[in-house]
């Protein structure tokens, strides 16, 4: 069972991996980093990753469709509140509502995988891959497995 560094080192063994980080997307803190950082600054990269992850996680349009309807018109639902009650949703429910986020550019891929935890958290794994060597489909599957192993007993 891995800790944060072992998890990131495992991610770095994926083909084309340039850098990996575990980022708290509420505060913008990098809880761990391995390898290179996009832009050369670990902390700045974590802040930008967090901002992107937070936007994706909070938009209703990207939430799963099954209960998407109940979240619409949140103005009237405010007092009812069915998700996120302490103890009411032991597996974290639909928080975060999305699994991963993929960004591609001319020379690289960025893959952000939200980590679902049984305790309250807002963290995601960020993997940076070179476009020439990276295998996005493989990385997406592996990163999902790593996110699960990181926090589940």
């Amino acid at each position: 069972m891995p800790g944060i560094d072992e998890c990131l080192l495992e991610a770095m063994r994926l083909p084309g991996a340039r850098g990996a980080a575990l980022v708290d997307w509420t505060s913008g803190l990098a809880l761990g980093t391995v390898g290179e950082s996009p832009g050369g600054d670990q902390e700045a990269a974590a802040v930008e990753t967090a901002e992107l992850a937070r936007l994706a996680a909070e938009q209703h349009a990207f939430a799963p469709g099954a209960d998407g309807g109940t979240h619409e018109g949140g103005t009237h639902k405010v007092g009812i509140h069915e998700g996120g009650t302490p103890g009411g949703n032991p597996l974290g429910g639909d928080d975060p509502p999305i699994e991963d986020l993929i960004i591609s550019n001319r020379d690289s891929y960025h893959l952000l995988r939200f980590v679902r935890t049984s305790f309250d958290s807002s963290v995601c794994l960020h993997l940076w891959l070179t476009r020439a060597e990276g295998n996005l489909a493989l990385a997406r599957i592996r990163l999902g497995e790593m996110a699960g192993r990181l926090v589940l007993e």
Binding site: M1, L22, L29, S121, V123, R149, L150, V151, L152
Partner: peptide, 11 residues
């Protein structure tokens, strides 16, 4: 899980 402990401890 060690990852859970480490994550919560740092946070």
């Amino acid at each position: 899980a060690p990852g859970a402990l480490e994550l919560c401890r740092l946070v």
